[in-house]
């Protein structure tokens, strides 16, 4: 069957603003949206730019807007949409478009860095592994599923109005280290998030959770940070 794709195009060398280009692609219901985009590039228009690598939802390269909703092109199949085989494909919102569906994610990764995303420990390492309870590891486990695709942060309504807001992805990574019992600077991490650009920017709108391609309960994890901060405040 034929699927119609209206794809956002922007070439910085020639275009002053974005436009949409129509392609008709033969596809089967089980094909990924990414397969269709590849077919466009290989068979019709080699100038179409988008990112993709693993093609099965683990590398996080191909988050984009498919029929109005942020998703991974490799994780959505043609049959997942009731749009009479019509597709509108657009780049992630919030970020600046470099070309077509490719956006500049540098601000996203700068925010990631801002939460000190690494384990901090005191003293010498033990000879073998540090002990960590299975329960504690399972508690942070949802955050370990994150593939840094930026779907949540791009969808979050707050990131659109406050460019300084860390956003759900960076806060989720902060949760992963705050709640890791092996980490030594929990309080410092919490304090750093204690403002409107940090955890209190989150207004619990659930958009991040809704779009997460890995099914991470992002909003709940962020809620844990709020809970811990409130607990700290009440014990002060």
């Amino acid at each position: 069957m034929d699927c119609t794709f209206a794809v956002y195009r922007f070439d910085p060398a020639v275009d002053r603003k974005g436009r949409y280009q129509r392609y008709v692609v033969p596809a089967e219901s089980g094909d990924k949206v990414l397969d269709c985009l590849n077919r466009i590039r290989w068979e019709q228009d080699p100038t179409l730019a988008f990112r993709a690598s693993c093609a099965h939802g683990i590398c996080g390269s191909d988050a984009m807007v498919i029929n109005g909703r942020v998703a991974l092109a490799c994780q959505k199949l043609v049959r997942d949409f009731n749009t009479a085989n019509h597709f509108v494909i657009e780049p992630l919102p919030v970020f600046q478009v470099i070309k077509d569906l490719v956006v500049d994610l540098r601000p996203f990764f700068e925010k990631h860095r801002a939460v000190r995303p690494h384990l901090v420990t005191n003293g010498a390492h033990p000879e073998k592994e540090r002990r960590q309870s299975a329960e504690n590891q399972q508690f942070i486990e949802p955050a370990l599923r994150c593939i840094l695709c930026a779907a949540c942060t791009a969808s979050c309504p707050i990131t659109r109005v406050n460019p300084n807001y860390l956003g759900p992805a960076a806060l989720l990574r902060a949760f992963r280290y705050i709640c890791d019992a092996r980490d030594a600077i929990t309080l410092e991490r919490l304090r750093k998030l204690d403002d409107e650009d940090g955890i209190w920017g989150c207004e619990t709108m659930w958009w991040c959770t809704e779009v997460c391609p890995k099914g991470i309960p992002v909003t709940k994890c962020l809620g844990q940070i709020k809970r811990l901060l409130k607990k700290e405040d009440s014990s002060d």
């Binding site: 690494h118 073998k128 592994e129 299975a134 504690n136 890791d180």
Partner: peptide, 20 residues
């Protein structure tokens, strides 16, 4: 493996808290 754990890799754990 122990080096990775020291760097922060979150391995699954046994009931007594060692790497599963």
């Amino acid at each position: 493996i122990f080096e990775l754990e020291h760097l922060g890799v979150p391995f699954n754990r046994t009931p007594d808290g060692r790497i599963a």
